[in-house]
């Protein structure tokens, strides 16, 4: 009897310790963001209070300022939205058919073409930025939506192709054969039978591509300008100019990150799956 209770007590302590360690992990990841959220509602005076003010009178002044003030980030949010949406649409348009071919069809040089896509995915952006800059400058496409959206394809397309391939591979092999026998033909087999079965994968891939495009900074800062200034670039400029106005910076950052945070929370399950699909399966199979 006594040993049973001590065992139970030990298990309880153990679980408490585990939960505490996990709690610290969560805190480390969440706290900076939460702190930023708090800061965005503070006056600049409260920001600099020591010890830090946990209880303070919240103000919306910072949000008012970054949204409607002299250096409003509304145009930047719009720029980010346009570029990210266009880049995502373009990416999916090219990636889905290519991934289908790579994942399910037989054709010569299949390994080589898959390898080529993989290599293009590994190129670090800094390595490519100089030719992009020079070429876009030459054709007058610097600081244009089209220019930036097309350049975003370079990092989004290989990634999207490989992620989609893993979803296409999950569809049972006989699906096309059944559809072909049912007189669908190649194109309609893809459209009516295969694509509906990878809807989840398309959603996950779209989310990832959009997140990456929204968060992109290097291409945006070099290839953008006064007309096309994405919100990441605006944030960077903001802090360079207004070094000490943390509350405003925090408010701006919260607005800039609101879309991705919302997507992150709502699509949580899908994101975890998207992250793991390539890693777990790629590790196991290829």
């Amino acid at each position: 009897m006594r040993t049973a209770t001590t065992a139970a007590a030990r298990r309880r302590t153990r679980n408490l310790v585990l939960a505490a360690i996990a709690g610290v992990g969560v805190a480390v990841w969440v706290f900076p963001v939460l702190w930023g959220l708090l800061t965005s509602f503070k006056t600049e005076r409260d920001v600099l209070a020591y010890p830090p003010a946990v209880f303070f009178t919240p103000t919306l002044a910072n949000y008012r300022e970054v949204l409607f003030g002299a250096s409003s980030i509304l145009p930047n949010l719009w720029s980010s939205f346009v570029v990210a949406t266009a880049a995502t649409a373009l990416t999916m348009l090219f990636a889905i058919p290519a991934a289908y071919a790579l994942g399910r069809l037989r054709y010569p040089y299949k390994r080589a073409s898959g390898f080529y896509v993989l290599v293009t995915q590994m190129l670090p952006p800094v390595g490519l930025i100089i030719p992009y800059y020079l070429v876009l400058q030459k054709i007058g496409a610097l600081d244009t939506y089209v220019g930036l959206a097309v350049i975003y394809l370079t990092f989004a397309l290989p990634f999207a192709i490989w992620l989609m391939v893993s979803y296409f591979e999950d569809v049972p092999l006989e699906m096309e054969e059944a559809a072909l026998l049912d007189r669908a033909g190649r194109m309609r087999a893809l459209w009516h039978v295969i694509l509906p079965q990878v809807r989840g994968g398309i959603a996950v891939t779209t989310i990832f591509v959009f997140l990456n495009a929204w968060n992109e900074f290097l291409f945006a800062v070099v290839l953008g300008g006064n007309r096309v200034r994405t919100v990441t670039v605006a944030m960077f400029n903001f802090i360079s100019v207004e070094q000490t106005q943390w509350a405003k910076v925090a408010a701006g950052a919260m607005l800039a990150m609101l879309p991705v945070i919302l997507i992150g929370i709502f699509a949580q399950r899908h994101i975890v799956k998207g992250l793991t699909v390539g890693a777990v399966k790629g590790g196991g199979r290829r």
């Binding site: 968060n215 944030m235 800039a256 992250l275």
Partner: peptide
């Protein structure tokens, strides 16, 4: 942290 922009 994963969904946040590195620059931010």
């Amino acid at each position: 942290p994963i969904v946040l922009a590195p620059v931010v």
